[in-house]
Amino acid sequence: MLRPDELPARDRGAGARTVPLVTTARGATSFLNGITEFEAGAAIGHHTHNATESVVVIQGEAVVDIAGERTRLRCFDTTLVPANVAHHFENASATEPMKIFWTYASLETTRTLVASGERSRIDAEDPTGSAEPASVVREAARITVLPGRAKDFEAAVAAAAPLFQRARGARTLTLERSHEDPLEYRLEIGWDSVEDHVTGFRGSADFREWRRLIADCVAGPPEVMHFRPVLTAF
């Protein structure tokens, strides 16, 4: 449970302050969100993000400038701004406060100020002064299944999902099937660290159960590599 009035805020300057809510440090797996409060007449600088942003006005009235087009927003009006589109919000009132609730579609979201080119990672803007959070490590496993066993394999992965979910450091799991080769799958699992996967999970009874579940469906052991984010462009 996250209560904004009990969490530290970051002074954005020019009469704006931000309270981060869902962050990687608090368990985020695929998005970030928080609240920014604007004093009467306050505005933040024109900027872009490398990921889609959605904003809901939750108090007062705002003006949003998206690529030079200015729109007045009432409480609960919602915006959707694609990546790399310059925008900013202003408090439309000269006397009353305004608040927005924002969500970014990537843990790796950055903010780049148009005027200066200064760039910072959203999830690193920690008002407690903590170190910049580490990026999630992605385990990518290429798995080839035996002819006629695709559905059995998919069922086995679904049955194994709780094994991964309770593993230390595991954050996400997705399974994709190749369009060109229906016998080939890619399993992606997000981990806090390589050690959580290689030393922690692989040494557990749950790992042995995972391999048992898929043993009769696969043509050979999964081919596994680990990746860290380098660039999120949009």
Rank of each mutant, 00 (worst) to 15 (best):
Gly169Trp: 01
Asp123Pro: 09
Gly129Asn: 02
Ala161Cys: 06
Ala124Gly: 06
Asp181Gln: 13
Val85Gly: 06
Val63Phe: 04
Leu80Asn: 08
Ala219Tyr: 02
Ser130Met: 07
Ala42Lys: 08
Leu173Arg: 11
Ser120Arg: 11
Ala141Arg: 07
Ser106Lys: 10
Asp152Cys: 00
Pro229His: 00
Arg70Asn: 03
Glu188Phe: 13
Gly60Lys: 07
Ser116Arg: 04
Arg138Met: 11
Ala159Trp: 00
Phe227Arg: 06
Glu90Met: 13
Phe76Glu: 10
Ala160Thr: 09
Thr172Ala: 08
Ala28Lys: 08
Phe89Ile: 03
Arg168Asn: 11
Leu187Trp: 03
Ala42Leu: 04
Ser116His: 07
Leu32Gly: 06
Glu154His: 05
Glu53Ala: 15
Ala156Asp: 03
Arg202Asp: 02
Glu118Met: 11
Pro221Arg: 02
Ala160Phe: 10
Thr29Tyr: 01
Ala83Gly: 15
Glu176Lys: 01
Ala160Lys: 05
Glu188Trp: 08
Val56Glu: 14
Phe76Lys: 07
Glu184Val: 14
Asp65Val: 12
Val137Leu: 11
Thr103His: 12
Ser193Lys: 00
Gly68Pro: 01
Phe207Lys: 00
Asn91His: 10
Gly117Tyr: 10
Gly129Ile: 03
Thr48Trp: 09
Ile66Thr: 09
Leu175Asn: 02
Glu209Tyr: 02
Tyr104Ile: 09
Leu73Tyr: 05
Met1Ala: 12
Ser135Asp: 13
Thr103Glu: 08
Arg12Ile: 05
Ser135Cys: 13
Phe234Asp: 12
His179Ala: 12
Gly13Leu: 01
Asp196Ala: 04
Asp126Arg: 07
Ser54Glu: 15
Ser106Trp: 01
Arg228Leu: 15
Gly148Glu: 02
Ala115His: 08
Leu163Val: 05
His49Leu: 09
Phe101Cys: 10
Phe38Cys: 01
Pro162Ala: 03
Gly27Thr: 03
Lys151Asp: 15
Ile35Gly: 06
Pro4Tyr: 09
Ala150Met: 14
Gly203Glu: 08
Ala9Trp: 11
Pro133Asp: 04
Glu6Trp: 05
Asp152Lys: 01
His197Ile: 04
Ala67Lys: 03
Leu187Thr: 07
Cys75Glu: 15
Glu180Ile: 09
His46Phe: 15
